[in-house]
């Protein structure tokens, strides 16, 4: 199985963007692209070719679930696993998100030192 190298993160909050970028690049050693909105992710996913997408659930305009729906409809994530990134923690909500076609859910708040290993765990789980 190939290594996890490229991560596309979609989140509208600048503070989260900044810290997640540090975490992904400095701790995880990944190449990352940070998008501020669902639409930006849709526009740039083909050019960036991520291995995995980390998608915030609550965003203005196009939220996470709708972004995922659009990505699926346009065939942009056929071979790319999408992981939701959310402050929702109820297991029923997690299940609902998975039903939409997400590979997994990473809960917020996240520990910037641990986020990369969480992603690697999900990645190896998928490739088992």
């Amino acid at each position: 199985m190939s290594d996890l190298k490229r991560v596309l993160l979609v989140d509208d909050e600048p503070d989260i963007q900044a810290i997640a970028k540090l975490s992904l690049e400095k701790v995880g050693g990944f190449t990352s692209l940070i998008c501020s909105s669902g639409q930006e992710a849709i526009d740039r996913i083909t050019e960036f070719k991520p291995d995995i997408v980390l998608l915030d659930v609550m965003m203005p305009e196009l939220d996470g679930p709708h972004t995922l729906k659009k990505l699926q409809e346009q065939g942009l994530v056929k071979e790319i696993p999408v992981v939701f990134f959310t402050a929702k923690v109820l297991s029923s909500e997690v299940d609902e998100l998975k039903e939409l076609g997400a590979e997994d859910v990473i809960s917020k708040p996240f520990d910037p030192m641990k986020l990369p290993s969480q992603l690697r765990d999900i990645w190896s789980h998928i490739n088992e």
């Binding site: 959310t86 917020k108 708040p109 910037p112």
Partner: peptide, 21 residues
């Protein structure tokens, strides 16, 4: 509050995160 509950903990403000949640 929702956005705070998702972010405050990451920046070390656990109390704020828990309470906002």
């Amino acid at each position: 509050l929702h956005s705070m509950s998702g972010s405050a903990g990451t920046f070390g403000f656990e109390d704020v995160g828990t309470e906002s949640r």
